[in-house]
Design a protein around this nucleic acid. Structure first.
Lengths: 103, 103
DNA sequence: GATAATGGTAAGTTACCACTTACGGTAAGT
DNA sequence: ACTTACCGTAAGTGGTAACTTACCATTATC
């Protein structure tokens, strides 16, 4: 499974989107992330595991605390994928429009 | 449910990704999309419905044919979302790095 | 060293998703 | 008109995702 696929799946879940929104403001330990979210702390741990596999967050262990933060590389990979897609799609649509006017 | 959420969910599925890859080359009717894909034609129809709800493809009816094509607006909405996210995340990481060096 | 704090993992449940086959509906061709 | 081509939808099924509670491991604190 390509990692971009994992990233898109990860961003599709509303809870994970909330987690990323919070981490986009500042790095946070798991407990702080879970506080304020509508799900339990273990659920957050499971989401973080998915986000980590998708390359969207990274971890730093300080004592018993695990501080999570956004991993910019994961975000950038998605942006690159969409940009390439964008270019190809626009080019194809342009060709299609020209062909239609050929009639 | 926000439409960007729908778009990310849509891009998370590998079959839908394949469909979009094909449509990025040129607009196609449903049958042509399904040919070459590892799933049945009705499955493709269901995926197209999801892609349409996400604003990623549009439809044009010619006789009994439904020709689908990429809708650039949906792609662009995702790009915009990621760009905003990217900016905020980078700013937050910069602040965090400065705070760490303050110790 | 006992206790508390922090967080990852296991097991189980519920809900949803992707897929199939079967069917219906509309437009084109003969 | 009959048949064919094209495609959407309904119903049913198997698998997986998200969540909960319960438990365990590790590190700080007293």
């Amino acid at each position: 499974m390509a990692n971009t696929s994992r990233a898109f799946i990860a961003l599709g879940d509303p809870t994970r989107q909330l987690i990323l929104e919070r981490l986009a403001k500042r790095p946070l330990p798991v407990g702080k992330i879970a506080a304020g979210l509508p799900v339990s702390r273990p659920a957050v741990s499971q989401h973080l595991k998915i986000l980590r596999a998708a390359g969207l967050v990274s971890q730093a262990q300080h004592g018993t605390r695990r501080v999570y933060r956004i991993d910019p590389r994961g975000i950038d990979a998605m942006r690159t994928y969409l940009d390439r897609f964008w270019d190809r799609a626009l080019a194809a649509l342009k060709v299609a429009a020209e062909q239609e006017s050929d009639s």
